[in-house]
């Protein structure tokens, strides 16, 4: 039990530190690298909770595929040293309100609901096996799953349409 808690505290520190580093680093490449570190430490947290499938999916999809694309775009555009762009006028107050709501919810969850590592991992040792996950996804949550996939497809088509238009304009 004690090694678990020590590990959790270390991971939590790494996750928070890398998130802060992502926000405050001047260089966009360093921001992206911090975000990768953040995703990876969250993946290890899943591993501690006894959900290896989700942990590795997190690494493959977020720390791997998506962040590689982020880095790729940053490098391709040479956008690693961005000047401070002007912010929208309502951005700051809205973000402060949202952050406050998040903090309240988090404190509520911490104080009034006994979230513990035991509660999650004792439930059923097999709850996170790939077969169990698939069973859940394709039976109970089939509709949300399919809607998500259509959403992603639409986003992809959108990206293709946008690049198409630009090409045609260049040709004229």
């Amino acid at each position: 039990m004690i090694p678990d808690i020590v590990l959790f505290i270390i991971l939590a520190l790494v996750a928070v530190a890398s998130a802060v580093g992502m926000l405050f680093s001047k260089n966009a490449i360093y921001s992206a690298l911090n975000l990768i570190l953040n995703f990876s430490s969250v993946a290890v947290l899943y591993l501690i909770l006894g959900a290896p499938f989700i942990a590795l999916a997190q690494v493959t999809v977020y720390a791997g595929a998506i962040m590689v694309l982020f880095l790729f775009v940053i490098m391709l555009l040479g956008a690693e040293r961005l000047r401070r762009s002007e912010t929208l006028p309502y951005q700051q107050p809205v973000s402060i309100i949202l952050a406050a709501i998040l903090a309240v919810v988090a404190i509520y969850a911490l104080l009034f609901r006994p979230l513990g590592i035991e509660a999650a991992s004792v439930a059923n040792p097999d709850f996170s096996s790939p077969a169990a996950m698939a069973e859940m996804l394709f039976n109970e949550y089939l509709l949300p799953f399919e809607v998500t996939s259509i959403l992603l497809l639409v986003a992809m088509i959108g990206a293709i349409v946008l690049t198409r238009k630009r090409q045609r304009r260049v040709q004229r």
Partner: peptide
């Protein structure tokens, strides 16, 4: 014997590109 062996391999291959990209940059 891990029940997610293949997923582990895909996870590792998907992060193996970073070294090369960062070296280049």
């Amino acid at each position: 014997d891990v029940n997610i062996g293949i997923l582990y391999i895909t996870a590792i291959t998907s992060i193996s590109v970073y070294g090369i990209v960062l070296a280049g940059w």
